[in-house]
Simulated scan of single mutants.
Amino acid sequence: MDHVGAGYVDDLEATSATLVNGWLRTGDLCYFDNDGFLYVVDRLKELIKYKGYQVAPAELEKWLLSHPEINDAAVISYPDEEAGQVPMAIVVRQSQSSITEAEIIDFVAKQVAPYKKIRRVAFVDAIPKNALGKILRRDLKKLVTSRL
C-alpha cells in the first residue's frame, strides 16, 4: 500500500469496501485482450440495474454508434417502477436521417441479450462531453428529464 492512502478518515466501512487485500477498488470495469492490453470499458457506478441484471452503458453505446444513421449516442438509466431502471438511448442522428425510436430499439435488440435492450430513446442535437470527450451523464440526465 505504498502508493495508496491508508483509507477514509473515521469511515471503516468505506475503507474496507475500497481497500481489499492491499488493492484499491476503483470501480472501473476492465478486460485484457489476447495481446495483454488492458481496456477500461465502463464504471460500476454507471451500470444500469435492470430487474437485478447489470447493464453496461458502454456496450449499448458501441452498438448504437455502429448504426450508419447515428452520429453520436449515450446510454443512461431511466427510472422505471417495475424494473427499477431501464436503459435509455440518447441519440444524435446523422444529418438527413429520420431514424425512429422503434428502429433504434429494434436494431439494438437484435444485438444484445433481452435484459440489455434499450427501452426508451430521446433525440438531441449534441451529447454533452467534457474536454477529454467523456460523456457528462449527469448533465445528460438533467437535459433529458427536463424535456420529458
Results as ranks from 00 to 15, higher is better:
144 V>I: 15
72 D>R: 05
64 L>T: 03
77 S>D: 03
4 V>L: 15
146 S>M: 12
60 L>F: 02
113 A>V: 01
18 T>K: 03
60 L>Q: 04
1 M>G: 13
64 L>F: 02
25 R>M: 14
58 A>W: 07
120 R>K: 15
28 D>K: 05
32 F>V: 14
65 L>S: 09
70 I>C: 03
26 T>N: 07
34 N>H: 11
104 I>T: 09
46 E>I: 03
121 V>Y: 02
33 D>H: 08
110 K>Y: 11
116 K>A: 00
80 D>A: 04
94 Q>L: 07
38 L>Q: 12
29 L>F: 07
72 D>T: 07
9 V>K: 13
1 M>W: 12
47 L>H: 04
146 S>Y: 09
26 T>E: 10
63 W>C: 01
136 L>P: 01
27 G>Q: 11
133 G>P: 06
86 V>W: 01
101 E>K: 11
48 I>M: 00
90 I>G: 00
121 V>R: 04
127 I>G: 01
12 L>C: 02
79 P>L: 13
8 Y>R: 06
59 E>I: 04
112 V>E: 00
91 V>R: 03
110 K>P: 05
35 D>L: 10
93 R>W: 11
41 V>S: 09
138 R>K: 15
4 V>Y: 15
98 S>M: 12
85 Q>Y: 08
119 R>A: 01
2 D>F: 12
10 D>N: 13
48 I>A: 00
68 P>V: 12
148 L>P: 08
80 D>H: 05
45 K>I: 07
3 H>R: 13
59 E>R: 02
107 F>T: 10
41 V>A: 05
89 A>E: 08
40 V>G: 06
106 D>S: 15
36 G>D: 08
44 L>A: 14
56 A>S: 15
87 P>Y: 01
85 Q>C: 06
90 I>V: 14
107 F>A: 03
88 M>H: 04
51 K>P: 03
142 K>V: 15
117 K>N: 02
94 Q>Y: 07
118 I>Y: 00
5 G>W: 07
83 A>S: 14
116 K>I: 01
94 Q>S: 12
59 E>K: 08
100 T>R: 03
86 V>H: 03
24 L>C: 13
